[in-house]
Amino acid sequence: MTGLGAMLYREARLRATNATFIFWDVVYPLGYLLVFGVGMSSALGGSFGGMGRGL
């Protein structure tokens, strides 16, 4: 548990002092989903609202 606690502390301090980490944590995955999730879905004939219903 010492290692896990230290890792969480490290990650928290990284985010508290570096705004760019928020970009990689939040904006980048959302952008990825937008391009490869919504984009692929519509390329295969689905629609945004229809995602998850099977192709």
Binding site: T2, G3, G5, A6, Y9, R10, R13, L14, T17
Partner: peptide, 19 residues
């Protein structure tokens, strides 16, 4: 050294890894 962390945080983080 953890380049994104401050000097103090470098030491505090390392210390925590060692209990």
């Amino acid at each position: 050294a953890e380049i994104f962390l401050t000097v103090r945080d470098n030491l505090l983080t390392f210390g925590r890894f060692h209990g």
